[in-house]
């Protein structure tokens, strides 16, 4: 194993640790921070089952976003395709993480590739709307472009690896499985792969400290996740006794 391989292997472990600890830290922090009052945006369900029924379309179909006008519909198309294709691509990548590869993952490959092609288009929508609309231009920050460009770069290097500079898949798989089994292996001999993999590490390390935490936040946003039941039950947070 050469020096670069050692560094990348190490970085991968550090990143994974940062991601997991950072993410869990936020989960625990949100969990520990109380909701002193009931503040669901009403009309809201009055039972826990009702809240679950409210949250499913919020999480899976961004339901509230669909209440908006044309701009939000465009955003919905870009955002929804982006999230779904991202998920499909991650699922497709499981073939590099498993041995033997389960049949279901192999069945995904076609869909995964289609997703890989739609992915940059969706991201293009998300990025273009940020500077073509005067309101978006005002609210957009450096980090909004940063994360979009980061993900686009990950997608494009992925597509490069798939279609133009094909890498030896056996090497890739050996490397990944090596990481997963704590028996570090040689990094595949491909600069594009190195960039692709490196950018993924950046994304993972950045995740818990950024707006990407909306992935967890959406589940604990009190305006959506609370039941509207002050008549039925007394809601009390510890500090507010």
């Amino acid at each position: 194993m050469n020096g670069l391989s050692t560094v990348i292997n190490l970085l991968a472990y550090v990143t994974a640790l940062v991601f997991v600890v950072g993410f869990l830290n936020k989960v625990i922090l949100y969990f520990k921070t109380p909701n002193p009052l009931l503040i669901p945006t009403t009309p809201a369900p009055t039972t826990t089952m009702g809240v679950v029924a409210r949250m499913i379309p919020e999480v899976l179909f961004f339901r509230s976003l669909l209440k908006g006008g044309t701009a939000e519909k465009v955003l919905w198309v870009g955002g929804w395709i982006f999230h779904v294709t991202f998920l499909l691509i991650v699922l497709r990548h499981l073939r590099f993480f498993t041995y033997p590869v389960p049949g279901i993952i192999m069945a995904f490959q076609g869909l995964g590739i289609l997703a890989g092609l739609l992915f940059p288009i969706a991201l293009l929508i998300l990025i273009v709307r940020r500077f073509t609309n005067d309101r978006m231009a005002v609210i957009t920050l450096f980090q909004d472009y940063f994360v979009l460009i980061l993900i686009i770069a990950i997608g494009l290097t992925g597509l490069l690896l798939k279609y133009y500079v094909r890498t030896n898949l056996v090497d890739v798989k050996a490397f990944i499985l090596g990481l997963l089994t704590f028996s570090p292996a040689q990094l595949p001999d491909s600069p594009i792969f190195l960039i692709h993999f490196g950018l993924v590490l950046v994304l993972l390390a950045y995740f818990p400290f950024s707006k990407l935490m909306h992935a967890w936040g959406i589940l604990v946003s009190p305006t959506r996740a609370q039941a509207d039941n002050p008549r039925e039950a007394r809601h009390v947070a510890p500090w507010a006794q």
Binding site: G68, K211, H214
Partner: peptide, 8 residues
Amino acid sequence: DECVRCGA
């Protein structure tokens, strides 16, 4: 933490 500045 969670606002993504989507603009909705």
